[in-house]
Amino acid sequence: MILSEETRKRIDSIIASDRIVLFMKGDRHVPQCGFSATVIQILDALVSDYTTVDVLADPEIRDGVKEFSSWPTVPQLYVAGEFVGGCDIVREMYSNGELQATLGAGAANLGRRPEAG
């Protein structure tokens, strides 16, 4: 699949819409796969607010985000516009404290971007 310019812009826009964005199967309350559920569990332990995107509801995003990040699997976590990793990487980063540092966690509630100005 070749990522269309339109889909790339959509993904860009989604990632820019929040500091923490998770592309996943299902949503925060009803994850549709074990890997997505694991990342949700970890994020919920660290932050109160973040955006999820259900790729099952949008085949273009589902395929597009894999090409966008050059990463083969979903879930995919983005923080401040940067691709962090999938479930295995997020899990390991959580266990060694890297994820907390990446999220700036400790001070919970850091999901939303601050209002400009």
Binding site: S70, D88, I89
Partner: peptide, 13 residues
Amino acid sequence: AGYTAKLLRMLRL
């Protein structure tokens, strides 16, 4: 370097 680090991390895992 960042992408390479992620790939090597997956290979390590």
